[in-house]
Amino acid sequence: MKIQDDVLAGLIEINSKVLDVGCGDGNLLLYLKKNKRIDGRGLEINQKNVQECLGKGLAVVEGDAEKDLINYPDRSFDIAILNQAIQQFYEPRKVLNELLRIAKKAIITIPNFGYWKVRLNLFITGTMPITKTLPHSWYDTPNLHMSSIKDFYNLCSLDNIKVNKSISISSNKISDITSNNMEVKNLISELGVFVVSK
């Protein structure tokens, strides 16, 4: 998703040290390396993906964030990225807090379960929603902990995590999320992008 890469790139300063957790095939890291000259690292559980990353010249470790983040020293990165992966962890809360130990800031993106199409899908069909950003059936989805934008905000306030910036992406439209427009954005956003810190 090009627009999403642009949004993320816009949140990252030139020459930052970046850890992309669940970096997939490494396209985002490569994009940031080219456009923001980042010093990037990746952590990825799928070996095929890691191999692709290595072919792109990226430094990526095959591993499981829930087990391996503990090995990264405190504040060793400027930014940690968790791009549409937080919902796939057994303990998303723990992972989020780990990222903020390792990096000064974290950028988290979530597929928004509060999006109206998701709500409508469940409301009308009475079955678990299947949409563009949530393409899996309930029985084979990697997504264990779905949340809405509002849910994510609530977790942050529970854990004293500062939300420095939050952005809504919907049908390629980008807008800021504020406490005033929260209810609306929670309804109309496909994706939420958050810059958080402690």
Partner: peptide
């Protein structure tokens, strides 16, 4: 890998099954 990671070295790792 952990030792290299902890000093910010550029390290990749793969465990072949």
């Amino acid at each position: 890998v952990i030792a290299l990671n902890s000093i910010g070295a550029k390290v990749s790792f793969v465990n072949i099954i």
